[in-house]
Amino acid sequence: MGVIKKIQYNCRHATYLIEKRQHVRLTLRERIELAIHLSGCSVCRLFQKQSRMINKMIKGVFRAKEEEGRRLDEDFKRTMQRQIDERLNK
């Protein structure tokens, strides 16, 4: 298999580069490889779109969880308050 053919077929490598690209700048060689692959592979283009969307969603999910407004148990808070007061009064 020729070099170009290898790049065109290797979705495994292409998806690896798609993930890496979302966090760091790829090397020139990697950028060219990915461009060649994506130009001929609609499945990986779809993967890329979905992967970015998932990243966005993950961020949203975690933010939402942080803002859920859970409250610590009042008894537990009293225990902590007592511990803090005791240590400060030592």
């Binding site: 969880k65 803002e67 859920e68 407004g69 859970r70 409250r71 808070k77 902590m80």
Partner: peptide, 11 residues
């Protein structure tokens, strides 16, 4: 306390 609790729980 509640803020830190939510922060930790989310993670």
């Amino acid at each position: 306390a509640d803020y830190l609790y939510n922060y930790a729980f989310a993670r």
